[in-house]
């Protein structure tokens, strides 16, 4: 859909809510070079949400919404969890699926979009928590990768079931004692990034959201590779400060601790040679454009 098609009819302009008008006049739809640098001076594609004060998940949400390459041509698929509290406030088309079904829904959606808009590029991005991706929806997640479905899966990994009170999840670290898992976890954290690599994902990255420039780079790469080559998977650490017993201002430090050397969220990415060639090609094209614009 072109940006023109969703603009407000001039006669209705005066009765539209201010937030909507802001999105039309000050947002970054249609800009090819959008990124987190626009945040603060343009209207963001996410509005007042109901997540807790200081929630790192909402930082991740802001960074991701700022980094999506083409928001007007993107459909996001969410699942039950804290993320589903935010999706009603997101200015990008989105679908709420039943718990765990998100990758199956995204598969059908992506195929339908290809049939409906054969000459346009449509991005599908799955954004779900670790319970939906790894525990309850693992079947759908893995099968979509086995089939090589071309969309991006983003997992907000908070290492437990946060909004039901702190039950044990597959991605919880070994030995961690949560409010509703008092014995402590007896198994290792599921190595989903490695499983994703072996299951056919063209690009896999593990990171925290403590560096917006890194989030932007990774999200852009993941979406662009998913357009051309195959499934991509991002696992982003978004600690639940309530469930791990931190104050609202300590979330950022928690993420920085978790990504220090040797820790479980140290930045790592797995890129197939085909995807790497594609990344290099995109970078070379961008460099050539920049050179051409400066020499003019």
């Amino acid at each position: 859909m072109g940006k023109e098609k969703i603009q407000i009819n001039e006669e209705f302009w005066d009765i539209m809510p201010d937030d909507y008008k802001d999105l039309v006049t000050h947002s970054t739809y249609g800009k090819t070079d959008r990124g987190w640098k626009d945040v603060g001076s343009s209207t963001e594609l996410i509005a007042e949400h109901s997540l807790c004060a200081g929630c790192p998940e909402s930082i991740a949400f802001r960074h991701i919404m700022a980094s999506i390459p083409a928001p007007e041509d993107t459909v996001m698929v969410g699942s039950t969890g804290c993320t589903s509290l935010v999706f009603p406030m997101v200015a990008v088309h989105n679908i709420h699926s039943l718990f765990g079904n998100q990758n199956a829904v995204a598969t059908g959606l992506k195929r339908a979009l290809n049939v409906r808009f054969p000459d346009k590029t449509k991005d599908v991005i799955v954004l779900a928590g670790d319970g939906a991706t790894v525990d309850i929806g693992l079947d759908m997640t893995l099968q979509s990768w086995f089939r090589g479905e071309k969309f991006t899966t983003i997992c907000f990994d908070n290492e437990l079931y946060a909004n039901t009170g702190g039950q044990e999840s597959g991605l919880m670290q070994k030995g961690f004692v949560a409010k509703m898992a008092p014995v402590g976890k007896k198994f290792e954290k599921v190595r989903l990034p490695e499983i994703a690599r072996e299951s056919g994902c063209a690009y896999v990255a593990v990171l925290t959201t403590s560096k917006p420039s890194l989030v932007e780079k990774v999200v852009r790469q993941a979406v662009l590779i998913a357009r051309e080559i195959g499934p991509t998977y991002l696992q982003i650490y978004t600690p639940c400060i309530l469930e791990i017993g931190k104050q609202s201002m300590e979330g950022l430090q928690e993420m920085r601790d978790a990504e220090s050397a040797g820790e479980r969220f140290k930045f790592r990415e797995y890129v197939t040679p085909e995807a790497q060639a594609f990344i290099d090609e995109v970078a070379a094209k961008k460099k050539a454009e920049k050179l051409a614009s400066t020499s003019n």
Binding site: K37, V39, A47, H49, C55, I59
Partner: peptide
């Protein structure tokens, strides 16, 4: 842009 970057609230 530190505060703008790390504020969890949009806008």
């Amino acid at each position: 842009r530190l505060c703008i970057m790390y504020c969890p609230e949009a806008n």
